[in-house]
Design a protein around this nucleic acid. Structure first.
Lengths: 106, 106
DNA sequence: GCAACCTGTAACGGTATAGGTTACGCTTCA
DNA sequence: TGAAGCGTAACCTATACCGTTACAGGTTGC
């Protein structure tokens, strides 16, 4: 196996999940040679909205996950789960600052 | 096996997932005999916010998922995934109304 | 050079949601 | 009767999604 790692692989090693927008660009737009403008038009959304997702300034909403699943074929759940994992990773970083009392093991 | 079904079981048969708030109440508050007021105080949130979640008028945010995982012990991911599945179920109902062009199988 | 195209993004408005405090009316129970 | 618990309306702030329009910068090809 290779010792060189992709940017995504390096980030996962440091427990820093990629923003879903990066995955979308690398896995869908680039392989198909799609421009942002063309992809936005196909998805039925504005170029600005897609640009915001691709550059990490917006997340993937439930409706957007359904749109992606129609256009690119992967399940809406997989798109939305990516976003959930990313959001959760952000929230976990603040875990120690939360004032919460343990109640019981679930 | 019994032919009588719980409300949750009936909803799953019709592919109508329960709101995470219902699960929270049935699996955490009721078994421990916790009042809404006491649970909210332990979670470090207002009684109004917890009430909104329990009665389906608000979702479980990433931060709230972390709070629940501290107080009740289940993983934050499991709490957040419940919310994601619920949100996605709502979004899927509108799938046919979205104007999206198929681009390629992912 | 210049036109055509793609891109990121600022500015602005509309809508939705999470969260807080305060306060009201209702029910249950000692 | 009074205390406790509950749902929730009213009002506030902050954040997020999404749209349109417009601008600046980069690339490509004639």
């Amino acid at each position: 196996m290779s010792t060189t790692k992709t940017t995504t692989e390096k980030r996962m090693l440091m427990h820093n999940p990629p923003h879903p927008g990066e995955v979308l660009r690398g896995l869908c737009l680039e392989p198909l040679g799609l421009t942002v403008t063309a992809a936005a038009e196909a998805l039925g959304i504005s170029r600005k909205t897609l640009s915001a997702i691709l550059n990490g300034r917006a997340g993937i909403s439930p409706e957007m996950a359904v749109r992606l699943s129609i256009a690119f074929g992967a399940s809406a759940e997989s798109w939305l789960n990516q976003q959930t994992q990313y959001d959760l990773w952000l929230a976990e970083r603040n875990r120690k600052n939360l004032k919460v009392r343990k109640l019981s093991a679930a």
